[in-house]
Design a protein around this nucleic acid. Structure first.
Lengths: 178, 178
DNA sequence: AGCATATAGTTCGTCAGTGAACTATTTTCA
DNA sequence: TGAAAATAGTTCACTGACGAACTATATGCT
């Protein structure tokens, strides 16, 4: 048994919430509701990500980020520069080097030089990579459906809107910090 | 300049969204909306977490998890067992050992034996730790307010409800997996 | 034209998390 | 009652992300 999740995610959320409510009552000006909401976001998101990662690892033998890069390659018609990919995923370039290494090692993509700009590299998905992507899409669709069950379309749009606003606020905040 | 965020979070979200919409048009049965929503969640949450972490590190010289443990200690009246804390934060016990080490090293908490159950350890916040928590609360409150600006209370409650449902669905899914 | 600056990719060291294996206790129950 | 199972904390090796520093190219500005 894992040492994480001695309790389920729901139980942890509940425990976290009551702990922060108690803490808030003892500390003046503590914005309990917002702290709790933010903590929920930061507990649920990685848990979803971890579950997705386990699925991908089980079915494809590669990490979630590697698989996502593969999906993004298909959306670019098969080839893209690493820096484009890490923009899509909001990851650092250093990380994408490792991801590309992994994809090439598994024969899912190839590196080739870009003739126009010799600083650039073109990462291209292989037929094997394409096959993997289309083979795994049904699994992903099933998982997404299961995880979003009981959340109405209207709610999903609300969340999307709120997340966009959060992102904008955070960009502004980061920009304002010295 | 960091190698991350050559583009802002908002720009990355936009790029990700259009990439997945294109990918979806080429792959049958690809649940674009849900994938995009999930990706937004997984881009925004760590970005918020990272920003919070930078703030804490700057003002307190410790990591976000260490600081959170400190806050949770106060909510338990000053002392708690490490395993309680990692339940609150949905972290593994191994991790909490490191967190406790760090807090003790900085003089923010102490380890003492639990007389009732000699397997257990009682982690207790020190006066210095309490002072740190109350000193940083205003900063946190300011940050939270900035980040949630423009998101109505009704929306916040909607998100909270949806996140709870996501957590429940995920627990069920994890439980169903072999 | 030529130097300063910016960009693409890589390498390196670090950080915060994980699971598995271990020890020491406590609890359970046949 | 005593052996089996569970629990608390630790240690260890590993993972996937990061930022900083580096090289090689390309771009922009006098």
């Amino acid at each position: 048994m894992s040492q994480l999740a001695q309790r389920s995610l729901c139980e942890s959320i509940e425990a976290m919430e009551s702990a922060f409510r108690i803490a808030a009552s003892g500390i003046d000006g503590f914005p309990a509701d917002d702290v709790i909401l933010l903590r929920m976001l930061q507990m649920v998101a990685p848990a979803l990500e971890a579950a997705f990662g386990r699925e991908v690892r089980k079915h494809a033998g590669i990490g979630k980020t590697e698989f996502r890069a593969l999906m993004l390659l298909t959306s670019k018609g098969g080839c893209a520069a690493p820096s484009e990919l890490c923009n899509f995923d909001h990851l650092g370039r250093a990380n994408m080097t490792r991801v590309a290494d992994e994809l090439v090692k598994h024969g899912l993509a190839t590196r080739s030089e870009d003739a126009d700009d010799r600083r650039r590299i073109s990462l291209c998905i292989t037929p094997k990579g394409r096959k993997l992507v289309s083979r795994l899409v049904p699994n992903i669709a099933t998982g997404e459906a299961a995880v979003f069950e009981g959340i109405s379309m209207a709610q999903r749009h609300q969340i999307a809107r709120a997340l966009r606003r959060l992102a904008a606020n955070l960009d502004a905040w980061n920009h304002a910090q010295p």
